[in-house]
């Protein structure tokens, strides 16, 4: 599913000095895996996820997604990749505040070459347990509910890959737990999930853990799910 080889990413600060966020990162993630990426703040987790999500391109190295080399794709082609293959879940939910839950879930269909599918959006809302909230505006939902709407949105175009950056970071433990349960059940349904977190407990839901330190891979461990390594 994911083949990252020797990925590096160097930013330029405002004054022109380079900041190396990622350096020589290589790993592969197979279809259906549930991988958690951990690391200290500033270690480069989000930078990595942005590249995996085709929002950003590596400064050097190669990234293949579903067999396709996307490290050098142009902006439009990366948009299409995101539309077809990737679902994002953010720490801050990022729902459109003036749109209803249902409209938020439908949003990705707007940019896919598919006909709008309200029934499917409804179904997804049922799936995340929010069928009754379809007509509510995002601002009328609790954090946990918003994140579940965001997950339904991420699933709208049936992407093979779900990327989540601290999805429970803004939630209390109960809401976080329900979000993790939802992600676990999606994983069990065959979805590939890559999740960034600080949280030891959240990490325990995954069956593989990649630790990033100073922009490089510090460890890559496969483990039994539900039991911290």
């Amino acid at each position: 599913m994911i083949e990252a080889s020797h990925l590096s990413r160097t930013y330029r600060r405002g004054d022109g000095t380079p900041v190396t966020a990622l350096q020589d990162i290589s790993f592969t993630i197979g279809a259906g895996e549930f991988v958690v990426i951990r690391g200290a703040s500033g270690s480069g987790k989000s930078s990595l996820l942005n590249i995996l999500g085709c929002l950003d391109t590596p400064t050097s190295g190669q990234y293949r997604l579903a067999g396709e080399d996307v490290s050098a794709l142009a902006d439009d082609a990366r948009s299409h990749m995101r539309s077809k293959r990737i679902g994002f879940v953010f720490q801050g939910f990022n729902l459109l505040p003036r749109a209803t839950a249902l409209e938020n879930v439908e949003l990705p269909a707007l940019y896919a070459d598919a006909s709008p599918d309200r029934a499917r959006a409804r179904q997804l809302l049922e799936r995340v347990g929010l069928g009754a909230r379809a007509g509510h505006f995002a601002t009328e939902l609790s954090g946990g509910e918003q994140q579940r709407v965001a997950i339904a949105r991420a699933l709208m175009n049936e992407p093979a890959l779900l990327l989540a950056d601290e999805p429970t970071g803004n939630l209390d433990s109960a809401a976080g737990e329900s979000v993790m349960q939802l992600l676990t059940s999606l994983h069990e349904g065959g979805r590939t999930i890559v999740l960034v977190t600080h949280d030891e407990h959240v990490a325990s839901f995954a069956d593989r853990e990649i630790v990033i330190r100073d922009g490089g891979v510090a460890s890559d461990t496969v483990r039994q799910r539900g039991r911290p390594a």
Binding site: S79, R82, L110, M156
Partner: peptide, 14 residues
Amino acid sequence: EIGVRRAVGATRGD
């Protein structure tokens, strides 16, 4: 909002 739309697949042109 623009970021969200871009993340879910909107091109610059969209």
